[in-house]
Amino acid sequence: MNKIIILITGLLASFCFGFAARSIIVKPINSNTINMKKVTGIGGIFFKCKDPKAVNEWYKTHLGFDTSPYGTSFEWRDMEDSTKKGLTQWNPFAETTKYFEPSTKEFMINYRVENLEALVEQLKHEGVTIVDKIEDSEYGKFVHIMDIEGNKIELWEPK
């Protein structure tokens, strides 16, 4: 009987010690990171083509796109607050563009995000390749990252 009590006491002590050690050693997860929105939507679709001007004209003629030399912008309203407008950009690039580098792919997707600085810090911590520094422009903040297959991704926090 004493052996059983000693065994149970030992197991209970081991469990409690393990739980206490885990609480001390394991870094707690930042609750802001868990709740942080990452991507909130698609900000744009960019792709390479032989003749961007001809592609713009084709989409204008056959699909009714309101194109400019920079493609077209699709305007939409926020689902939660219909007073907020958003844009999704569609843009053909010359096949010789360097803008997609270091990716060798024919396309690049722009994702809308909230709090770009915090997201970049989190991505760095997770080992994601950050291609450049955050750029602040009249359209908002931009940065480029690479996914695991070598696709360059543009992250955009609109103003």
Score class of each variant (00 low, 15 high):
residue 14 S to A: 14
residue 13 A to E: 07
residue 22 R to L: 11
residue 40 T to G: 06
residue 49 C to P: 04
residue 72 T to R: 09
residue 15 F to Y: 13
residue 27 K to N: 14
residue 117 E to K: 11
residue 74 F to V: 07
residue 84 K to R: 14
residue 144 H to T: 13
residue 7 L to Q: 05
residue 33 T to C: 04
residue 147 D to N: 11
residue 9 T to Q: 07
residue 112 R to Q: 12
residue 14 S to Y: 12
residue 131 V to A: 03
residue 31 S to V: 13
residue 24 I to V: 11
residue 124 K to Q: 11
residue 156 W to Q: 04
residue 78 D to W: 04
residue 40 T to M: 08
residue 50 K to I: 07
residue 5 I to G: 00
residue 5 I to S: 06
residue 17 F to D: 00
residue 118 A to L: 04
residue 23 S to T: 05
residue 150 G to Y: 07
residue 128 V to K: 04
residue 59 Y to D: 08
residue 29 I to D: 02
residue 38 K to M: 09
residue 131 V to I: 14
residue 158 P to L: 06
residue 17 F to G: 00
residue 13 A to C: 12
residue 62 H to K: 15
residue 149 E to S: 13
residue 149 E to V: 06
residue 55 V to Y: 06
residue 92 P to C: 13
residue 16 C to A: 15
residue 27 K to Q: 15
residue 84 K to G: 02
residue 41 G to I: 05
residue 78 D to C: 09
residue 153 I to W: 00
residue 159 K to N: 14
residue 38 K to A: 13
residue 64 G to C: 06
residue 30 N to M: 10
residue 115 N to G: 07
residue 26 V to C: 02
residue 158 P to V: 03
residue 83 T to V: 12
residue 143 V to P: 03
residue 74 F to T: 04
residue 29 I to Y: 08
residue 49 C to I: 05
residue 145 I to K: 05
residue 119 L to C: 07
residue 61 T to D: 12
residue 134 I to K: 05
residue 153 I to F: 00
residue 109 I to A: 03
residue 119 L to Q: 10
residue 109 I to T: 15
residue 60 K to M: 07
residue 158 P to S: 05
residue 102 P to I: 02
residue 155 L to T: 08
residue 70 Y to N: 15
residue 98 K to W: 01
residue 107 F to V: 09
residue 54 A to R: 12
residue 74 F to N: 02
residue 91 N to V: 13
residue 48 K to E: 09
residue 91 N to Q: 12
residue 90 W to C: 11
residue 111 Y to E: 12
residue 50 K to C: 01
residue 103 S to T: 05
residue 117 E to Y: 02
residue 101 E to W: 02
residue 95 E to L: 12
residue 72 T to C: 09
residue 92 P to E: 14
residue 72 T to M: 13
residue 106 E to P: 00
residue 114 E to D: 12
residue 35 N to I: 09
residue 104 T to W: 01
residue 96 T to P: 00
residue 133 K to W: 00
residue 33 T to L: 07
residue 158 P to G: 03
residue 63 L to S: 03
residue 112 R to H: 11
residue 105 K to A: 13
residue 13 A to L: 15
residue 155 L to G: 08
residue 62 H to F: 10
residue 23 S to C: 06
residue 92 P to A: 11
residue 28 P to I: 13
